[in-house]
Amino acid sequence: MTAPRAQELGIIGCHVCGLVCRAPASDDAACPRCGAALHRRRRNSIARTWALLVAAFILYIPANVLPIMRTVSLGDVDDNTIISGVVELWIKGSPSLAVIVFTASIVVPMTKFLVLGTLLASTQRHSRWALRQRARLYRAVEFIGYWSMLDVFVVALLTALVRFGFLSQVEPLPGVVFFGLTVVLTMFASMSFDPRLMWDLSDDD
């Protein structure tokens, strides 16, 4: 494979408008067409992504351990965590939706931690291992990430809907805030990772 890379040709593509121009000498040049900052690579991509990923992972622990929602009905108090909500949905509602919620709340964030962690580690070691597959994994993770917000919206809707005073009431609990923060941080993490770094190997191909 001999397709040239922009870096070798001394050109740079604007990430906002796609304009191709000669790579500027200084590091804080702006795109002549749209004015966005031109970067050969995202700045401090690896360190920043690690920091966001670790922060997201730390917040993911209380998001799972703490209850996300409280149901009060006729004086009975029932606190739900993400997992107990999935189990309840499985038993009382619909197993297929339980699978969807489980995927959005548990599988997707866990996959994101694992995949981004692997990508960061392998990029730092200049690994040539499965480059195309790793590139594909990154795109998949970037694409599905925001669906994790599902459970946050479910808690919000139920809180607004179930307002029958003493008979039945739903309140949000701190777990849902931690969970929302986790999702936002993992989204920032995947955005700050620069997949081009994976391909920056000394003698390409």
Partner: peptide, 13 residues
């Protein structure tokens, strides 16, 4: 025709 640079790997097309 124009140059298109892949955002994911920096390859020029």
């Amino acid at each position: 025709p124009r140059l298109v640079i892949c955002e994911h790997c920096d390859t020029v097309h």
